[in-house]
Nucleic acid binder design. Structure first.
Lengths: 168, 168
DNA sequence: CTTGGAATGTCAACAAGGCTGACATATTCT
DNA sequence: AGAATATGTCAGCCTTGTTGACATTCCAAG
């Protein structure tokens, strides 16, 4: 399906026709829709949106992170993030603690209820990703990650790499 | 987190730890940001957003398509799409023709100016995708597409496959 | 042939969640 | 003391999603 009319012999070469690239573009579009569909349903029930998901995800990922830190990762303005954080804190999913070393900073944590939501969301997303990985196989997964990483902007890749290392 | 103590040696098998899956999730998040960054810049100059991009892309892709058709592909409500179409038509990028067979339908086409914008946008996105493909290599590209296709919802995949065949 | 329902598309109004700009407050650094 | 930093908040804008109401057109059952 990758290359119907082309000789498969040159499998290791890149024939980057516009068609190939357009297909990649559309695959990305539809896949991202699928990728966010399950969490979106869960979030909608609680009156939240993707913005809440992103905040919860990265607070879970880096407990005690500061507001500014989150701002950089998410790439939104503080006003925008603040609106989301305000509701999450009000709803008791996130707690904010004044920094000890630097009292200007607020360190963010998930409450047990926040952890529960995060698990709920990531399970849904993980199930889909697991199914996709299983269907595609290990080789495909490696390629998948390689292309995605190559597609990031320079500074995003740095964020991503930083997060990656932290976990290994 | 489920199984951090598993042997990594079995390279050709799937060790789908939560870590693996979480990394995939984050790669998807950051990559999609990169994926849309270039078109977003172009669109911002004209006061358009991503919705305009999607509409222009799929009208270019299937000239003469109806509003309803586009609705299904894009997965939004007709009211939402209509607003975008209205501005595109007002700005002379898209033309709408009453159907001959069925006069309820409107058939959509890009004007020359619309074609120019589409080319502009797709060039930008294509350049990034091409660079990513080059960096990752042909094998990786195949895997990339496989995983993305496996990640789509059933009905999205049908849309995607339909578009794909049309082009081949 | 008429009439009622289904399909298609338009307009109006509202909400979420981005954005900018301005400003307040507390804290730290120089 | 004064500048810089980290955060929060208010006001107002835009895009893009939503639902509701409505006009037009088609088609099929009576």
């Amino acid at each position: 399906m990758t290359q119907s009319a082309q000789p498969k012999s040159v499998a290791n070469q890149l024939f980057l026709t516009d068609e190939q690239l357009r297909k990649g573009t559309e695959a990305m579009f539809f896949a991202y829709r699928g990728f966010t569909a399950d969490p979106d349903r869960i979030l909608a029930d609680r009156g939240y949106g993707r913005a809440h998901h992103r905040a919860v995800h990265f607070i879970h990922r880096s407990p005690g992170t500061t507001v500014n830190n989150l701002l950089n990762i998410l790439g939104v303005t503080k006003q925008s993030l603040n609106r989301v954080l305000r509701t999450l804190i009000a709803d008791g999913l996130v707690s904010s603690h004044v920094g000890q070393r630097d009292k200007r900073e607020r360190h963010l944590f998930l409450t047990p209820e926040g952890v529960a939501l995060e698990r709920n969301l990531s399970n849904a997303q993980r199930d889909r990703m697991r199914a996709a990985y299983r269907a595609a196989g290990a080789e495909a997964v490696a390629g998948f990650r390689q292309v995605l990483e190559a597609m990031m902007d320079e500074d995003m890749r740095r964020q991503y790499e930083a997060l990656k290392e932290k976990a290994e």
